[in-house]
Design a protein around this nucleic acid. Structure first.
Ligand SMILES: NC(=O)c1ccc[n+]([C@@H]2O[C@H](COP(=O)([O-])OP(=O)(O)OC[C@H]3O[C@@H](n4cnc5c(N)ncnc54)[C@H](O)[C@@H]3O)[C@@H](O)[C@H]2O)c1
Ligand SMILES: NC(=O)c1ccc[n+]([C@@H]2O[C@H](COP(=O)([O-])OP(=O)(O)OC[C@H]3O[C@@H](n4cnc5c(N)ncnc54)[C@H](O)[C@@H]3O)[C@@H](O)[C@H]2O)c1
Lengths: 211, 211
DNA sequence: ACTTTATTGTGAAATATTGCACATGTATAA
DNA sequence: TTATACATGTGCAATATTTCACAATAAAGT
């Protein structure tokens, strides 16, 4: 275990990535894996895998490898994804609905417990998942009642900051933002942006550099 | 201009990010911006902004700042997003449909020119955007006819590799993958993954480290 | 003209991250 | 037992990235 050290963000991202192939392997009845093999599956350097994992403690066995079951357990503990997280979502058009309906989040412990929109035509609609769309003024009371921990924003970009502020005001400390704007936030709060256009721009750049 | 140097991936990502506030400013009638102000808007270090931009040439004016119009033009040229890119998409359920309908991609030059699914109930469906859902065996001929450059994958994870291979086989050199698996690819091809669960895991981790 | 103020562009220092290489430990087989 | 093969954990060197700090330059004011 590397003690007292700041863990690189890149490590956190990679470690989350390791989870998927590991879960697949368990399903296939494989129980042990080497850093070499895991590295190959994730297209990273084997030493990188070992170093990433060693930040959190040495759970491998020399000459053998890592017990996959334990590894999954440890990684989830590290990421704090070994528990349930309660999500609220604002903006229930195509994108919001797709996210809400998606089963993977639920499976991984990310549970939508409330849905908000500002459109009178949407408010009151009952969703397949069992929730009813609420007006945004309910954000604060419901966030507190239900213990919402993460706010997901899929409103139009113009409204995203307003909604973010309502989430923050309701005591929510983290936002996953799908709208293409930079959200201003209090120092105590976290924002993680997902912007597909930026991802496409990166692809376009890399494509154009190819021979 | 910093000559002959490898441009960090992080720079490419940030530069794509700078685009949005710049476009907003133009709309507001602002024509010049300093690295300080742009940095503040994007929550990065001002020197970082200057260095990022200087990789591509010095288009600022000392004592004045950057001409926003020129900057947008230069950034788009850098990213190769100053032209149209043709996209094909496979997997037209919630996620695929949301992407297809989304107007921002179109506005930024990313145009869906074909849509594929394997579900007989979906094949033949006419989409609002003017396309008809095609069977996946049409990927190769249509990719070549229409000149598809980027393949978007929103199929179920189990089918994602198969579809990716069909894209590669059709001569498509870049894939934007939304399914939660690691796509194997030929060396000549690019894959960019988008995995919201990983993003949520990162948020969960950071939340759990807060005081 | 000169001074002041603003702001870029970039070497160089400071940090951060990655990858190598090998000592160390485990398992297996002879 | 001992030898052999295998694979982790990590110090350290190699790279990469970020940030500082300041000379260079432009504009505005006096
Ligand atoms: N919906 C979300 O919010 C969300 C979020 C994150 C990731 N994803 C991922 O995006 C993908 C799509 O998710 P979804 O929610 O739209 O639902 P989904 O997985 O039900 O949809 C899959 C679609 O792909 C089609 N398909 C299956 N095999 C195919 C093949 N071989 N060729 C072409 N099409 C094929 C199916 O007919 C269906 O239309 C999944 O991999 C999912 O994990 C979805
Ligand atoms: N659809 C996509 O594929 C896609 C892709 C990338 C990004 N996005 C982004 O995700 C967001 C949502 O996109 P969309 O395609 O679902 O369509 P959209 O922008 O049409 O949907 C916006 C939804 O938010 C609701 N809304 C508006 N103001 C609100 C407020 N103040 N409070 C609560 N709800 C409010 C609207 O009623 C509507 O239901 C947008 O910011 C978009 O740029 C979407």
């Amino acid at each position: 275990m590397i003690k007292d050290q700041k863990i690189p963000d890149a490590t956190i991202e990679r470690v989350a990535l390791y989870l998927r192939p590991l879960e697949d392997l368990i399903k296939l009845g494989v129980h042990v894996i080497s850093s070499d093999r895991l590295a190959e599956m994730c297209k990273v350097n084997p030493a990188q895998v070992r170093k990433d994992l060693s930040y959190f403690g040495g759970f491998g066995v020399r000459g053998v490898g890592y017990n996959i079951h334990d590894l999954i357990f440890e990684i989830k503990k590290i990421l704090a994804s070994d528990r349930e997280w309660k999500l609220g979502i604002a903006g229930l058009d195509d994108m919001g609905m797709a996210l809400l309906q998606h089963k993977n989040f639920f499976k991984r412990g990310y549970k939508f417990v409330a849905a908000f929109d500002s459109d009178p035509k949407k408010i009151g609609q009952r969703l397949p998942i069992g929730l009813t769309i609420q007006p945004i003024r309910k954000i604060k009371p419901m966030a507190q009642d239900l213990g919402i921990e993460i706010g997901v924003i899929t409103t139009s970009p113009l409204q995203a900051q307003v909604v973010a502020d309502m989430f923050f005001d309701a005591g929510i400390k983290a936002i996953l933002n799908f709208s293409p704007i930079h959200i201003r936030r209090p120092d105590c709060c976290l924002v993680q942006n997902v912007d597909f256009s930026v991802t496409l721009d990166q692809l376009a750049y890399r494509l154009s550099k190819e021979v």
